[in-house]
Amino acid sequence: MSGNRPLRRTARRSPLRQLGKGVLVALLLVFTLFPVYWMLNSSLDAQAGNTSSFWPAEPTLDHYVFVLTEGGFGTFLRNSLLVALGTVVVSSVLALLASVAVARFRFKMRTQILMMVLIVQMVPLEALVIPLFVQVRDLQLLNTLIGLVVVYVALALPFGIWMLRGFVAAVPVELEEAAYLDGASWGRMFWSVLLPLVAPGLVATSIFSFITAWNEFIFAMTMLGGATESYTVAIGLHSFFGIHSNDWGAIMAASTIITVPVMIFFILVQRRLASGLTAGAVKA
């Protein structure tokens, strides 16, 4: 089948091939963006639910006003932000410390610990819901945001350790040696040599912790059940849908409010995220 070289070269630049690629890109864009577009479209349309128009038939911002005032999404956003930031900070610190241990030191049980870190990620959340519910209750943290942060840190930690381990391992040992020779203490070396080099990895894992906390549903549903004021966005949307199940314009407005902050954040950090992911995945 393979033709000779000159033929292939022309084939590659042929308009047909370019066209094919263009079609693929177009299809991909439609698939990725249509749900996002449809969400925005419905959220801005006073007629959402009455007609399926591909642009707002009767443009309005009323849905947003409704959702932010009566829907209570202002509070839910604040709660989610607190929970997500709390999770990011605590889990990043713990994951970084642990990843240095597993990447830099050879010690007994190292492999077992790595294995455990990988395995606990496999545990389905549904298995943890009942015991963690009881545990958080015993800590008197039900219906509180702290209770959720505690749980989310545990959920985000294994991935963080696993990801950061690659970054730490990629920092040349010579740099550390040099720091020692300069008489730097181990702690000092950690902050001045290691940390800056691992920063991109921290960005990547922070994003993951943030998303975990922002999106999580089942724990929020069980642990915040009793207090609407402490609802996070995911559970707030669930509850809003229960009350206004046919007001699609408002549901889509609420969905947009939840999605857009994350989306902007994602697009801004995308380059760093990509490099972070690969460096973590393709461990040096």
Partner: peptide, 29 residues
């Protein structure tokens, strides 16, 4: 352009995404 679009899809939380798909496939409307 394309990778920005992909990022947008990624950023959509699972709960939100689910409601959007439910809405797209809603039987009556």
């Amino acid at each position: 352009v394309t990778s920005s679009a992909i990022m947008a899809a990624w950023a959509m939380p699972a709960v939100t995404g689910t409601y959007v798909w439910v809405w797209i496939f809603d039987a009556d409307r």
